[in-house]
Design a protein around this nucleic acid. Structure first.
Lengths: 331, 331
DNA sequence: ATGATTGACTTAAACGTTTAAGCCTTTTAG
DNA sequence: CTAAAAGGCTTAAACGTTTAAGTCAATCAT
């Protein structure tokens, strides 16, 4: 029986014995319930402090059924999107008295699913989940606890995302306002609705007001396809609109290698406003995701669901903001 | 009694009743202990599956004293150092059957400390801790569980860090090998031992072989002091050695504004190899921290301590590696 | 045929809490 | 002055497990 640390910490009973009362009384004192005389309260609190008593949440949970913990499942902390999300979820959860279990699925839906099951076994009262793909890897899994999905519009879940469509529109307005009339586009994988919505929001706002001379697809990474590298020699467009900041940084780098100056020769804009966006040279003009707010709202909604709020499925869309830096020129 | 979800999940007793045995027998079957006949085993497993039974770790923990969870306390997930650390700690912990509670202290030692107390109350069996400062904010706190400290050389703890001193030496060798003989240095806050060790490792290896024309201190951020901005107009040095990659990126950006080309006019080197280092233009020559290994080793050591391994305090130093990219010129 | 061993299960206690119910004693109301 | 209410504490059951100890029957060795 490897009963380390956890054991032989002072318990309610230990306090009770010393204070000359019952464990129940100690519990009432420490939880501010029941009615206990002032001097017993004082005695109990003092001995608790003397013994260095620390509540045992595990034991507590067996009785109350509440672990005051939630799970957070993310695809990949190395993607700069997620650290901020994790941070804000954790901080908001803490504000509500919840601790958070972290699980980085490394993009593996199987891991993701096992992670969820493990969390459930551990008694989490809810899960904030950003699925690795748009596929619902938990669909056949009866979770028993509320789940709030972040950044993916899965049906049958409460979801919280950025308003990509409007964000695309915002960017279009800005590009137009700066006088650009010939546009090259590198969109993200159109199988992802986040990529699709930001594209559509942009394209529909541009319609009739400017020309999209070419449009190609690329993964959401800094590495560009050969087709794109060729396209970058196209001198007809005055701005290259990228599906996200990674792509944009890749484009700036590729243009640099080709000897074309940004934004002097051609402007570049990104999407997301990841932390790196402001450090590139030139700094990226982009559209900011409310990373922290996403996490806050997700945690807040989850806590409400845990407390039993039962209204209809929530599909929250958070407003994006244009961030104008140096990579887009006024023509 | 807000006894949600957690309750009315099938229990051992439910299975037992249906399978016509005792809860104890079910426990034996599901844990592969004791001796149970083949057909009872089969019956139990089947009903467990039918009911969608899921072990209750909380109840389990009250009896065994093992929660199979650890805590991870970090100063700031937005610092690119930490996501990788978190990822690898989590993944290594999972490999050993442990789940991890995450706490981002946002640099606040008070939060850090309360986080630790909270973790203990939750029954974590150990803590991986990267303190917000070099101060031991847990010193007066009897933790009861093993703690492994990452990236800070606190006494009285098991610690795991990168070998900054050797890393500084590695960088010096490289700078010398590339023919540089006049060096400008922007070191990190010398109150931090990590900044100090990397500086000393560099300086001592340079001694007598090249000249350090100037040396100034700056915070570990991209924002540079005015003194440094002035120093960057100093044309005597052929390379600027920076305390970390943030500073290096700041320097590249400042030089760019001054119209000086990197590495043509002056070389720049960083330290850490944060993810952004490879995306800057030019890509940074730097010294890589074994981020993932730090996390792995920390988790592994913690698990060993949890299992009762009791040897002397461990102070592990992980090897660093030179990463040569474009920001350093051969003279 | 006997005693010992093994196999297959059950019993019951324990883990550290919470909390409804109970039981005195004192205070309050009429 | 008595009955009811309030105050202050204890008792005991419960939460879902694990596990040492017990029981009983069947098998084995001699």
């Amino acid at each position: 029986m490897a009963n380390s640390a956890y054991r032989n910490r002072p318990t309610l009973r230990d306090i009770a014995q010393i204070a000359g009362v019952t464990a129940a009384t100690v519990s009432y004192v420490l939880n501010g319930k029941g009615s206990v005389s002032a001097d017993v309260q004082k005695r109990v609190r003092q001995t608790a402090k003397d013994l260095g008593y620390r509540a045992n949440y595990v034991a507590k949970a067996t009785r109350t059924g509440q672990t005051l913990s939630i799970g957070l499942i993310l695809p990949d902390l190395k993607n700069p999107f997620f650290p901020q999300l994790a941070q804000s979820v954790q901080s908001a959860a803490r504000g509500a008295g919840y601790a958070v279990f972290l699980m980085d699925s490394q993009g593996d839906t199987e891991v993701e699913r096992e992670g969820a099951e493990d969390f459930i076994s551990r008694g989490v009262e809810g899960i904030v989940w950003c699925p690795a793909t748009e596929h619902d890897s938990l669909s056949d899994y009866r979770a028993d606890v509320p789940i709030v999905v972040v950044d993916r519009p899965l049906p049958h879940y409460d979801t919280i995302s950025s308003d990509y469509y409007s964000g695309g529109g915002l960017l279009a307005d800005h590009v137009l306002a700066q006088g650009h009339r010939h546009i090259g586009m590198i969109v993200g994988p159109q199988s992802l609705s986040s990529a699709q919505r930001r594209r559509d929001g942009f394209v529909e706002r541009i319609a009739g007001k400017a020309e999209i001379d070419w449009e190609v697809e690329n993964a959401f990474t800094i590495d560009l396809s050969d087709e794109i590298r060729r396209q970058l020699n196209n001198f007809d467009v005055s701005v290259i609109v990228c599906g996200n900041d990674f792509i944009a940084i890749g484009v700036i780098r590729a243009l640099h290698e080709l000897g074309r100056r940004v934004p002097k020769d051609v402007s570049v804009v990104g999407f997301d406003d990841i932390p790196w966006a402001s450090f590139s040279i030139p700094a990226l003009t982009t559209v900011r995701q409310p990373f922290s707010k996403l996490g806050q709202e997700a945690a807040a909604l989850l806590v409400r669901r845990i407390s039993g709020e039962s209204g209809p499925l929530v599909n929250m869309s958070l407003e994006m903001r244009l961030v104008s830096r140096g990579s887009l020129n006024r023509l």
